[in-house]
């Protein structure tokens, strides 16, 4: 829980200190649990930045 990190649409993996693959998966799982959605296997490897995740979520049926 680090409230000092502010995400924008342009935030990329390398912008967040101590980012690693476990944190990435935790982040994806957090979004999935929070929004009740499930990303496709093709989605999870191609997100370039936060904006891409948001765009993907907007395109998904809720």
């Amino acid at each position: 829980m680090d409230d000092s990190i502010v995400l924008t649409k342009e935030t990329r993996r390398e912008d967040v200190p101590n980012w690693d693959s476990l944190i990435y998966i935790s982040f994806i799982v957090a979004v999935e649990i929070e929004l009740g959605i499930k990303f496709r296997v093709a989605d999870v490897e191609s997100f370039a930045n936060v904006g891409a995740i948001v765009a993907q979520i907007k395109s998904m049926p809720r």
Partner: peptide, 15 residues
């Protein structure tokens, strides 16, 4: 979770 297995070779799902 098949996606987690394919994505990161996690056999036990995070949940």
């Amino acid at each position: 979770d098949a996606v987690r297995w394919m994505q990161a070779k996690m056999e036990i799902a995070p949940q």
